[in-house]
Design a binder for these strands. Structure first.
Length: 226
DNA sequence: ACCCAGGTGGCCC
DNA sequence: GGGCCACATGGG
């Protein structure tokens, strides 16, 4: 049996409730978190963010002016700290140089323009770019991560599509949801919530075992669990 | 002593 | 255009 994407969203929402992503105080914190969480447990990212806050450098100017070696030391708990320090530095330098350090000026423009620019920056790939677009910029872009990809492989919800291709999954999910949701603001809200729910699902039921008997989607899966 | 975590870029074929 | 690999810390 095939699961409709919107039904899957509804099922997850009623099962887990609203997730309220992204957990951050402002746009800049979302961006820092998006870079720091690359292949890293969120718990470790929190430690790094707390340290940046404590040093009062969790701002565009803060990261711009802090010495690279000091920055590395502060974000150490989040791992890959050499490259992540470079990535944070190159991002704030880019915004400073091209947008007078004004994040809103950068974010609030044509979606594809912003996306292209993000992708041109060092260390910002598809998922990080889309996380920033959706959660910091409120653009209607769905974020695909490793969990989403895994879900696509295990659920017959995206039949006939390439589950290894990021863009293919993103566009399919966006198409399906756009068909159902006409209001742009509502769409953005659902993209935010849906991605968070997929992460929640994976963390709750699929930590180790690829197929979990406790999974709430069992009944709807032709093969028994995600 | 493994394996995993809200990825990305570089190199190889 | 896909298949490896390094990147690093902390928790199970």
């Amino acid at each position: 049996m095939e699961i409709k994407i919107h039904d899957l969203y509804k099922t997850l929402l009623s099962h887990f409730g609203k997730q309220g992503w992204w957990p951050a105080e402002d746009k800049f914190e979302v961006i820092v978190g998006a870079i720091l969480t690359q292949n890293t447990a969120w718990k470790n990212v929190e430690k790094a963010i707390d340290r940046l806050k404590k040093e009062k450098v969790l701002s565009l100017d803060g990261i711009l002016n802090i010495e690279r070696e000091v920055l590395k030391e502060l974000i150490k708990p989040s791992g890959f700290y050499n490259q992540k320090a470079d990535r944070l530095k190159s991002f704030v330098e880019y915004i400073d140089k091209n947008y007078k350090g004004n994040l809103n000026l950068f974010l609030h423009r044509d979606t594809n323009k912003v996306r292209e620019e993000l992708l041109s920056l060092n260390g910002i790939g598809l998922e990080t770019a889309d996380s920033i677009l959706l959660y910091a910029g409120d653009h209607a872009i769905f974020v695909v991560d490793a969990y989403t990809r895994r879900l696509c492989k295990r659920l017959p919800l995206l039949k006939g599509m390439d589950c290894d291709d990021y863009e293919s999954i993103r566009k399919k999910i966006e198409r399906e949801l756009k068909r159902k949701i006409k209001d742009e603001k509502e769409l953005v809200k659902i993209y935010k919530e849906f991605h968070a729910l997929i992460v929640k699902l994976a963390k709750t039921y699929c930590k180790k075992k690829p197929v979990c008997k406790k999974c709430p989607l069992m009944k709807k899966c032709s093969f028994g669990g995600v």
